[in-house]
Design a protein around this nucleic acid. Structure first.
Lengths: 352, 352
DNA sequence: TTGATTTATTGGAACGTTCCATTTATAGCA
DNA sequence: TGCTATAAATGGAACGTTCCAATAAATCAA
């Protein structure tokens, strides 16, 4: 049974009493071969325990069907959701995407990209690691490999991008906070080396300006994009002379951290301090209290990215349009009105 | 610059004025070539924008350096942690593991496995999808591909397994609950088609028997292994005539769901109903209240699995020993003593 | 100087496919 | 029956590497 040397189409050919070419045709489902012959060959394939050697085939065909997905942080459930969306569409196209993690490390990313290239990928969907330079993709671009960026863009690069409307999302969330009566706002987490950060912060700032919040009342605290970062941000903010009463967080992880830190101080997220997240990961809904967050339809973006990729491969081009995904604010329990605002106008009513 | 046809070692050879064989030697870092020649060749490699064709090489060498990781649920942060651990060791071995997701679907798993085989993987680390039959791996085994199962085992299979000591973990957790004075215990979530479930449930049962809990006071509620499953389990349990006062959950996700459902009913996890999780994912510590859970050192298991894999590849064997990882109970805030027990013996003291 | 050794380099065959150009078999038609 | 048109099957070359055996160049011993 356990034949030592692996079987090739020649073995199948001998077994079935046909030529290697016939076997190859059968393997590719060509309509040129007689049905009975095909049956015979397929039986032989089973019998010898054949496994197709895609490497050898690619050598001749010059294009694989491997699509790589390069992700900067597998640990963030957000990216898992993205991956799931992509897989849905690739699966129905009969292709299996391979995922590789760069752990937010540009050096590691270089290795991953190199490995994927050597493997002869047909295309790449990438959420670039922080600090990536456009040079990292020059090789790929020269080789004509289709690439699409998901969720993150590089400062100056002509590679197509699929991303949510970060600016608008931040604007919506901030407007909501202001509408609740908050006048001292904060933006928590993230740092300016991320384009996404600039976009979200931009939306926050624009909302503040447009809706009459003085610049000095819009506090910006940079920090890690994690629970821990959120905790740190809140500590910093509450230590100030005129602390904010509400915060828009760079992402949900930061928001969770903020809520945690509030609780630790005996404050209740929502009534005592309003917090809004960004991304609306599944946990947001299940948190206590449930987190108000900007929903970006992550799996949907994954699907989009996959479709664009498929189209690029099919039309053998390396260019495509950017896609800016719609966002919407999902209001839950984590942001009540400003208490002081309520005191000022006692008749103004309840939480909604 | 953007040469249409991709460069081969022949192009390099021409550029550098040497033979293809010399180029090949340089590529492999052979000590046989004169340093100056090597330099010349390496320059040519840069100049022509060469990318190594691993497929072609494997055709000759018959063993790739690709290792695949097949995961049943990318969405569960638990598996991301496992992946991270593995990547640590593979990275230092200079190899890039490719991750593929089966979404707990045996059919999808079949496709993934097939694709990986065709790609000529050197080895596979697999957390099999629920309902996998040993037959799914026969092909791989016949081909002599080293396989390691991580976290889950198949009922009857000689493939080596890396798994935490589920039985012991469940025993410890249950004993802890009983030590707190609980007499009506429940086991929430999971279903018996999972070997892991049987192991954990086994530990629970053994602790109950050994420590004097009657079988009729040990309630078992099967359910999804997710937050939602946890919510459902709690509802079911509390609807009973003599509801439990504490539960060991199949995993942390179930535990989170249980805590959520408790809160929804106005009960406080810990004081009103003790809950213990399993796996100790990072969120457990950050939850409110922090979840008591059985820590299994997931990244450590990932590292173990990777090491075993490397060793198998190196010694070209397909056999290895199982590894049962140590576990320990991390006590946090989610399980107080049974209130009724306190009432019975008021002097018995505080939560610990 | 010559032959024996060592050091660097090279050509050719092989790996397992695909695809093109042929060949062979089958059927259709006058 | 012979001839063409169609269908089915085939052999050979090519894809980009690696590895072995062989050659060429440099060094050494006598």
């Amino acid at each position: 049974m356990a034949s030592r040397a692996k079987a090739t189409i020649f073995d199948i050919a001998r077994e079935a009493g046909v030529s290697k070419s016939t076997v190859s045709l059968v393997l590719q489902g060509s309509g040129l071969i007689r049905p009975e012959t095909a049956v015979k060959v397929r039986k032989a394939i089973e019998d010898v325990g054949y496994v197709y050697n895609r490497g050898a085939a690619n050598l001749r065909k010059a294009h694989s069907n491997v699509i790589g997905m390069v992700i900067n942080d597998l640990t963030n459930p957000f990216f898992a959701e993205l991956a799931v969306g992509m897989e849905r569409v690739f699966q129905s196209a009969g292709i299996v995407p391979f995922i590789a993690n760069t752990a937010e490390n540009p050096v590691r990313q270089e290795e991953v990209l190199k490995s994927l290239m050597e493997q002869g990928v047909a295309g790449l969907i990438v959420s670039p690691a922080r600090g990536t330079t456009p040079a990292a993709f020059r090789r790929l671009e020269m080789a004509g490999v289709p690439i699409v960026f998901a969720m993150r863009r590089l400062p100056e690069s002509r590679i197509p991008v699929i991303t949510p409307d970060n600016h608008r999302g931040a604007y919506l969330a901030t407007a909501h906070l202001i509408g609740k009566g908050h006048r001292q706002l904060a933006f928590f987490g993230g740092s300016s080396d991320l384009v996404v950060y600039q976009e979200r912060l931009g939306g926050f700032r624009e909302a503040c300006e447009t809706l009459g919040i003085a610049a000095r009342d819009a506090l910006v605290v940079e920090g890690e994009t994690s629970r821990r970062g959120g905790i740190a941000c809140l500590e910093t903010a509450l230590a100030m002379a005129e602390p904010p009463t509400a915060a828009l967080c760079f992402n949900d992880a930061v928001a969770f951290g903020v809520m945690l830190a509030l609780r630790k101080r005996g404050l209740e997220p929502g009534p005592d301090f309003a917090v809004v997240g960004f991304d609306d990961v599944v946990e947001a809904e299940h948190y206590m209290p449930a987190l108000t967050s900007v929903a970006v339809d992550t799996p949907g973006l994954g699907e989009r990215a996959a479709h664009v990729m498929l189209k690029m491969i099919q039309s053998r081009t390396t260019r495509a349009e950017d896609h800016i995904g719609a966002v919407n604010l999902v209001v839950r329990e984590s942001c009540g009105p400003d208490r002081r605002a309520l005191n000022r106008q006692p008749g103004k009513g309840g939480p909604l």
